[in-house]
Design a protein around this nucleic acid. Structure first.
Length: 588
RNA sequence: GGUCCUGUGGAGCAGUUGGAGUGCUCGCCGCCCUGUCAAGGCGGAGGUCGCGGGUUCAAGUCCCGUCAGGACCGCCA
């Protein structure tokens, strides 16, 4: 190595040692006769000093982010000049010689932790952004997280196995990224949305315990917690029940949060059924850092003359409410703002009743439409106090109204300051439904088509697809779904019946994933697994706002990479060779 | 596909009712400076106000379109 020591490692014990350091000029303080330089390398920063002589004359020319080598003597700083802010603050290196490896042009963004920089500039010069301590620390944290997971899984006899990224379309619902195939013009690979089918094949292979930090691809629009290519910690196990998979999942999050967040998670994590989550929190990924639970008022308000509520109840739907503590203090404009908030989410509005802070008397537009009896018992029914606001949602579609209230719940907690930013609230959401209505009135799989019905439904799920429950589970942290999985179907007869409900004919099934069904003819073991959204897990551990922060070279919101300029056009020759324009041999 | 926010020297921001490219912090260039640590002092350079169109005597400011970045809905395990 060019260096003898890491800059960030120097302590008082090193005083008197002659060291060679190599790194970057983080900051310079040129006093003319004496020059201080913060020298940064991957380990941290140490102050180096140039005193009046030839080497100081050289040092005047240094600028931020020059890449340099210095040789010098570690000295204790003069009394009173220690910097308690720095781990290396007791010492400094008196430079005897300086070598400039390379100079740096004026910087397009400050390599400085004090300045917020726009995402476009940060991503275009991500390599400079990553020199900053925050982003650099995040990369290290992610590396440690991956290492912890590998160590833990290796210790439990899991095999790390890579699966193809050029493959056939998998049955998840998202749009595929497609790759034209030069050798077979007119045919296309798909990039995997997850290694789902391969990991099931590995179970047929007798691997029994598989994991992979797998890159996955989905061609859908972005969010702060979504990128077109992302990473899953993908796990699959044979001869297991749901509890076995959950146990592994809990061991992983417990290790991660203990080592990387200094937080001991109480195990086992609470489990809540999907229906209970929707009923109490209006979400299948409830944030349990605060209360603000929903109230089902469908029975309580039965018989009301208020058309909005009566319509939903008569249609067999749902009326519910959520309370905003202290919400009565909001101005009329703020209360109207909730209507705009609801409309922005596609709802007609968000009915509300204000409970007067002094008298507890209900008032507001909706109050006029409710009977004396309904109003009188309302506060008790929803658990509201004087000074609160009760928000209502009503719909013939139970889930739609619950989800509106669930979103309102999150917003209420945010606006009312009920979220404890230091808290970690984990839970499992279990017993998810197998099926949901799709746009055409048929059924589609909530999880994926290989998810097993639970023991209560395995014999009769087709008689009530709307109620059938699956061996499916999601792990949720602070309102973020960080992982999910299921026990898979290993019995051909059950698989056939699930396909029947989904409207997948034997021919469709054979065409899309016949290879899996074929494999399942040869003694498939009972198996199940889980996949963690690794970017989200790391985002939470890093306490970042976006998964872009925990990805070395992320795409921007528009799906572009500002650094490389990708995606780019291709040449006419590339286009011709790639087979992009080939006509399919058969109609599809 | 939809709603919203942002775009002003290299970076981060301010810019009032439409009235001169105006201002601030940092950076950059030059000079000074022997104990600083987000060093300090003096001086200087640097601008197609994202781009295009419109309204107006006059547009950074108002309107339309478009591009880029971001948030949300739709979509998406």
């Amino acid at each position: 190595m060019i260096r003898t020591h890491n800059a960030g490692s120097l302590r008082a014990e090193a005083v008197g040692t002659r060291v060679t350091l190599a790194g970057w000029v983080a900051r310079r303080r040129d006093h003319g006769g004496v020059i201080f330089l913060d020298l940064r390398d991957a380990s941290g920063v140490v102050q180096v000093v140039f005193r009046a002589d030839e080497v100081a004359d050289q040092a005047h020319a240094l600028r931020n982010e020059f890449c340099v080598k210095v040789v010098g003597l570690v000295e204790r700083r003069p009394a009173g000049n220690e910097n308690p802010e720095l781990p290396t603050g007791d010492v400094e290196v008196a430079v005897e010689s300086l070598e400039i490896f390379s100079e740096a042009a004026p910087l397009p963004l400050p390599v400085d932790d004090h300045v917020e920089v726009g995402d476009d500039v940060r991503l275009k010069y991500r390599y400079l952004d990553l020199r900053r301590s925050g982003p650099a620390r995040t990369l290290r944290l992610r590396s440690r997280a991956s290492q912890l997971a590998r160590t833990l899984l290796d210790g439990r006899d899991f095999l790390e196995i890579e699966t193809p990224t050029l493959t056939a379309s998998t049955p998840e619902g998202a749009r595929d990224f497609l790759v034209p195939v030069r050798l077979q013009p007119g045919t296309w690979f798909a990039l995997p949305q997850s290694p789902q089918l391969f990991k099931q094949l590995l179970m047929v292979s007798g691997v029994e315990r598989y994991y992979q930090l797998a890159r996955c691809y989905r061609d859908e629009d972005f969010r702060a917690d979504r990128q077109p290519e992302f990473t899953q910690l993908d796990i699959e196990m044979s001869f297991v029940t749901e509890d076995d998979v959950i146990d592994v999942g809990e061991a992983i999050v417990a290790a991660l949060w203990r080592e990387l967040a200094g937080h001991d998670i109480q195990l086992p994590l609470p489990r809540i059924t999907w229906h209970e989550a929707m009923h109490r929190y209006g979400s299948d990924k409830p944030d349990l850092r605060y209360g603000v639970e929903l109230s089902d008022l469908t029975d309580y308000l039965r018989g009301t003359t208020f058309r909005v509520f009566a319509g939903a109840i008569d249609a067999g739907g749902y009326v519910g409410a959520v309370v905003m503590p202290g919400g009565a203090g909001q101005t009329r404009r703020e209360l109207d703002g909730w209507q705009d908030w609801a409309k922005a989410r596609g709802a007609r509005g968000l009915a509300y009743v204000v409970l007067d802070a002094e008298t507890g008397q209900p008032r507001g537009p909706v109050a006029k439409n409710l009977s004396e009896a309904h109003l009188a018992g309302l506060a008790d029914e929803v658990g509201a106090k004087p000074g609160d606001v009760v928000f209502f949602a009503a719909s013939a579609d139970r889930r739609e109204a619950q989800e509106l209230l669930g979103a309102a719940r999150v917003e209420i907690a945010r606006r009312a300051g009920l979220v404890d930013d230091d808290a970690w609230a984990f839970c499992w959401v279990v017993d998810a439904p197998m099926f949901e209505r799709d746009a055409d009135g048929g059924w589609s799989a909530v999880h994926h088509p290989f998810t097993a019905p639970n023991d209560d439904w395995v014999d009769g799920f087709e008689s009530a697809p709307d109620q059938a429950l699956a061996f499916a589970y999601d792990i949720v942290c602070n309102g973020n779904e960080i992982g999910g999985g299921s026990i898979r179907i290993h019995r051909p007869d059950v698989q056939r019946r699930v396909f029947d409900v989904l409207g997948i004919t034997p021919e469709d099934a054979a065409a899309k994933f016949g290879f899996l069904l074929e494999a399942f003819k040869f003694g498939p073991p009972p198996h199940g697994g889980i996949a963690f959204g690794w970017d989200r897990v790391c985002m939470l551990l890093a306490e970042a706002d976006s998964i872009r922060e925990v990805i070395a070279f992320p795409k921007s919101r528009g799906g572009l990479d500002p650094l490389t300029g990708a995606p780019t056009q291709i040449t006419a020759r590339q286009r011709a060779e790639a087979g992009v324009d080939a006509k399919p041999k058969t109609a599809t």
